[in-house]
Structure formats: structure tokens, C-alpha cells
């Protein structure tokens, strides 16, 4: 069991070959494996011919049946009264195969890792607030710069849940509307919180760069989904939307939210612990903290 992982594979194989012929004392077994036999293939051939006769000529079936019969009888005699096996005393057989070599190699990665670390949920709340603000700023920017109205994006957002927004004229969309404003704020808060919570759980699972995954990739993906489905979800928004600005606002949300969340330290999930110990009824090891 010398640790020889630095030897080349060829070297190791050569070493093994040198080990090859071993004394009979190491060969206590006879290897019994079944003898090769032609009967099964004959029986299979016959059976196929029996069926082939149905679409060719009945004589084919007769020949097939004969073959099958011979094959089955031969086969039977192969296993009765004793199975016909080949005994290979390994010591005599030509190619003695040495046992494989295993050198203990260091385990290169943990035996079992599962995603069991998340950020604390309250960081999701903070992230959601940060993201919501960032997004609102960009959206308001779009409203002011492109559409000349601060209320425009807010009213359009309300259209996701209020069908009445769809009937509004452009003029109305530009003006403040209390009901729509309240709706839009509610939608904005709910969606932001939901995404924040998803980020809390999923960001620690992303490979290394949370800002890239949460700030860029995720917003691009959901913007794509929005792009494909907006016609159904919110036709009014579809009508007036500017997709670059939309994407920009989503990325603003993603980056702000992901940045806030990934700043907090992760906590371990209590996976695999019994309910009692999680509730503190029962102390288990590693619980001392």
C-alpha cells in the first residue's frame, strides 16, 4: 500500500504484470463458468423460422420446428442432470490475471455536500427594499425622460391586476390616480418581497458570483419570460413598454437586492436534525453554540 500516485499509469501496470504468476496456494478456487454451446442459437434460429414460415412457405416453419426441437433437446442435455461447466483452475490457465491495484488516493472533495446554507430571511427583506427602491428609481427615470410623466410607469404596473387600466387613454395614464397608485405599490412590494425571499435561498447555491447570477442572469431570464408573456399578462404595458428600460430596471433591482443579501453572513439550515432537537427539546452534539 505504498502511496504511489506519482508513478505513471504505465509504470503501475508494468508492476502489476510482474506480479502476475502466483503460486498455487493463492489459487484456491476453481472457476466454474458455463461452457460455450451452440444449442441456444439453434433454438432461436428455429423459433424465428417457425414464424417466418407464416409469411413465406409452410416448409420454412417445418424446418424451423425441427431446428428448434433439436436446439431445445441439446440445450436440455446441457443443463440436465448437471450443468455443463468449464472448470478453470486459475493457476493453470494461460492468462492469470493479477488482482487490481488500488492505491489509496486522497478524497478530493467532500463525501456529501448539500446546499444547506442560506442567508437569514431578514436580509431578504432588506434586499427587497433596496431592490424595490432601485427599480423604482430607474422606472421613474424612464417615465420622466421618455414619457414625460412620473406616474406613467406606476399606472402601467397597476394594469397587471386592474383590467380597467387597459381602457384608459394615454392622457389618463400620465396623471395621478389614487387607486392605481395604491395597487401599483402593493404589487411592487409583493413581487419585490417574493423575489427577495427566493434570492435568500438560491443565491448561496449559485457558483461563486452572486452578483452575476442574481444581478444579471436572473433579471435577463425573467425579462425574457416577461417579454414572451406580457401580451397575455398585461397588454397595456406591452403597448407602451420600452424593453431596454424595462431590462435596466430589472437589473437595477437584481443588483441592489443581491448586493444587500450577499453582504450578510450565511446561516446553516437545520437539515437532517430531528424536530425535537431543532426546537431545542433535545440537545444533540454540535448544538452547544
Amino acid at each position: 500500500m505504498t502511496p504511489d500516485h506519482d508513478k505513471s499509469k504505465a509504470e503501475r501496470l508494468a508492476e502489476r504484470a510482474a506480479l502476475a504468476p502466483r503460486g498455487p496456494s493463492e489459487m484456491p478456487y476453481l472457476r466454474a463458468i458455463p461452457q460455450p454451446t451452440p444449442w441456444p442459437i439453434l433454438a432461436a434460429f428455429g423459433l424465428t423460422f417457425i414464424f417466418a414460415g407464416l409469411v413465406t412457405n409452410w416448409m420454412v416453419s417445418v424446418v424451423g420446428a425441427a431446428f428448434a426441437l433439436v436446439g431445445l433437446i441439446g440445450w436440455f442435455r446441457e443443463v440436465f442432470p448437471h450443468e455443463n461447466v468449464e472448470a478453470i483452475p486459475v493457476a493453470d490457465c494461460e492468462a492469470v490475471l493479477p488482482p487490481p491495484v488500488f492505491e489509496p488516493r486522497p478524497a478530493k472533495s467532500p463525501r456529501n455536500v448539500v446546499p444547506e446554507e442560506i442567508h437569514p430571511y431578514q436580509s431578504g427583506f432588506k434586499g427587497a427594499v433596496a431592490g424595490a427602491i432601485a427599480m423604482a428609481v430607474v422606472a421613474a427615470g424612464w417615465g420622466l425622460i421618455d414619457e414625460g410623466s412620473f406616474w406613467m410607469p406606476i399606472n402601467l404596473l397597476a394594469g397587471t391586476v386592474l383590467p380597467s387600466v387597459g381602457d384608459a387613454t394615454l392622457e389618463q395614464l400620465r396623471l395621478f390616480n389614487g387607486g392605481w397608485f395604491a395597487t401599483a405599490v402593493a404589487v411592487h412590494v409583493c413581487l419585490s418581497l417574493a423575489v427577495g425571499m427566493v434570492f435568500v435561498v438560491s443565491l448561496p447555491m449559485m457558483p461563486r458570483r452572486p452578483l452575476l447570477a442574481g444581478g444579471l442572469i436572473a433579471p435577463i431570464i425573467w425579462t425574457g419570460i416577461a417579454w414572451a408573456t406580457m401580451r397575455v399578462v398585461n397588454p397595456t404595458l406591452e403597448e407602451y413598454i420600452s424593453w431596454p428600460w424595462f431590462l435596466g430596471s430589472q437589473i437595477a433591482f437584481g443588483i441592489a437586492c443581491a448586493a444587500v443579501i450577499s453582504r450578510t453572513t450565511k446561516i446553516r439550515l437545520q437539515v437532517g436534525r430531528s424536530f425535537e432537537s431543532r426546537m431545542g427539546f433535545e440537545q444533540t452534539e454540535g448544538d452547544s453554540s
Binding site: T37, W39, P40, I41, A43, F45, E78, V79
Partner: peptide
């Protein structure tokens, strides 16, 4: 042997 039979 059944194995060979099935294959063929």
C-alpha cells in the same frame, strides 16, 4: 444459455 437464446 437463456441469455444467449434471448440475444439471438
Amino acid at each position: 444459455r437463456l441469455n444467449a437464446f434471448g440475444f439471438w
